[in-house]
Amino acid sequence: MRIDLSGKTAIVTGSTGGIGLAIARGLAGAGARVVVNGRSQAAVDQAVATIRTELGEGRGAEAVSGVATDLSTAEGCAALVAARPDCDILVNNVGIFGPQDFFDAEDADWQRYFDVNVMSGVRLSRAYLPGMQARGWGRVQFLSSESGLNIPADMIHYGVSKTALIALSRGLAKRMAGTGVTVNAILPGPTLSEGVAEMLRPEVEASGRSLEEVAADFVKAHRPTSIIGRAATVDEVANLAVYAASPLASATTGAALRVDGGVVDSLV
């Protein structure tokens, strides 16, 4: 099986690090022209340089570019669309997370999570889907989470935003029926991204154990249903996203694609 995305343009939001950067790297490696996005110009430039170096001088300069804009606002989304008016693959990855008790989370906290995690994808999908429909081919993905099914008691606001993405992707898949455009949600489980590594760093330093060992203990303690018993790597998540973005996945749409290590204890 060979994934070939030559001639396709992909936009990956929130792709200066973590899962987003891994997806951008994977899509570029499969031949797509990739647009990296983040809030900071310096972070965007660094991510673009990293991917270009990996691709080599032959493809790097033309295959990867970047747009720095804050997608938590309508203006920020419009700026991205103005800079890159069309794409074939849209990966709505940008998101925020963090524990906060329900009774401490104020309206502004809920609004911030909804604006970043949900409305960015709504706005960009509304902008890019018509072009995909007109061309008869397209891929839209929403990075949800197993937390969208297993709502965490310590960050209900986050879980609700991820549930919304599952519903959004399913509804949009139906809306785009028969157009050649597929829409799916990707549901990672615990993943060893930079954010998770930073959260676990105090325990790593205190215990003298490796990050992977500490992460595995965290998964076993807080996600005991995990079948793999460890955190996934960002590349393991990206592999599924790259496949779902490819022509090979033409019959996969409206799906909640789990790459959660078996955390969700369900047959479907």
Rank of each mutant, 00 (worst) to 15 (best):
V140H: 01
T233I: 11
A134H: 09
V36C: 09
A78M: 02
V118T: 08
N93I: 09
V34F: 06
V259Q: 10
V259A: 15
S120V: 02
V204C: 08
V183Q: 02
Q46H: 14
D265F: 11
T179E: 00
R59S: 13
P224W: 05
W110L: 03
R25I: 01
V242I: 14
R135L: 00
T225E: 13
N239V: 04
G31F: 07
V219T: 03
A68G: 04
I23T: 11
G20K: 09
E213W: 06
A42C: 01
L240S: 13
D104R: 06
R59F: 12
F142A: 06
R201K: 15
S15Y: 03
N239P: 00
Q141P: 02
R139A: 03
D70N: 13
A231N: 07
G7P: 08
D154I: 14
P224E: 03
A245P: 00
A61L: 12
V44R: 05
G20D: 08
V122N: 00
D154N: 15
A79Y: 04
T69C: 15
S226N: 11
F114N: 01
A173M: 08
I156P: 00
D115W: 00
G26Q: 11
A82S: 15
I3Q: 07
S207N: 08
S72D: 06
S65L: 09
T50C: 04
M155G: 01
Q111V: 08
G171S: 13
D107K: 03
T50S: 11
P130M: 10
D101M: 13
V214P: 07
V36A: 08
P188K: 11
V118M: 06
S161M: 09
W137D: 00
G38D: 10
E203L: 11
V67M: 04
V219P: 01
E146S: 10
S145H: 11
M132V: 01
I151D: 10
E212H: 07
T13P: 05
A215V: 05
S72K: 07
A221R: 15
E194T: 14
A256V: 01
P188G: 07
A206W: 01
A134F: 04
T50H: 07
G38W: 09
V35E: 03
G180C: 05
A68F: 13
L5C: 05
D45Y: 06
